[in-house]
Design a protein around this nucleic acid. Structure first.
Length: 160
DNA sequence: GCCAACGTTGGC
DNA sequence: GCCAACGTTGGC
């Protein structure tokens, strides 16, 4: 049986909440707290083990892609929604019918810097990336393989 | 801190 | 089902 082709994603995190350094330290983590239906659908249905992820720092200076992660567990219920003490608690998510989903991701690599959003916007081959579009707030975004490779190349070039 | 863009809520 | 009000996101 041929395996499903690898898919590519961009996931946003505020580094003050969880950064690429945190992921490097932890090795892997669950990606809890996504509370948007479109992103939830992607986490539930589309992100699969082995997919690669551009780890994007948002609300940072500069905002941009800080490294690479990979999906190590596909969509499963975000149990933080059940925890009244969690900031991600959501009364409407029931254990027998969870509203919100999460995945687990693992650290792959950290760039020697950040591929700034301005640099992504300046790259003609990336004009169709969601993240460069004005007002794009989706926190889990599909990325093409070509876009992924270009951004990774830009990231690896930062060190040299 | 500002504020534009967006998603959600709730009155009707 | 419309849409105004509101809250949040996130770049700058």
């Amino acid at each position: 049986m041929p395996r499903r082709a690898r898919h590519y994603w961009l996931m946003k995190s505020e580094p003050g909440a969880y950064s690429i350094d945190d992921l490097e330290r932890d090795g892997e983590t669950c990606w809890e707290g996504v509370r948007n239906y479109q992103a939830r659908n992607l986490l539930r249905d589309e992100l699969k083990v082995g997919d690669l992820v551009l780890f994007h720092h948002s609300s940072a200076r500069p905002a941009g892609v800080a490294g690479i992660a990979k999906v190590v567990k596909g969509g499963y219920p975000d149990h933080f929604a059940f925890d009244r003490k969690s900031r991600y608690f959501d009364l409407k998510s029931k254990k027998d019918n969870p509203t919100w989903m999460m995945v687990d991701v693992a650290f792959v690599e950290k760039f020697d810097g950040v591929v700034a959003l301005a640099d992504l916007k300046a790259e003609p081959a990336l004009v169709n990336m969601m993240v460069v579009r004005r007002g794009m707030r989706l926190s889990v975004q599909p990325v093409t393989e070509t876009e992924f490779e270009i951004v990774r190349r830009m990231g690896r070039r930062l060190g040299s």
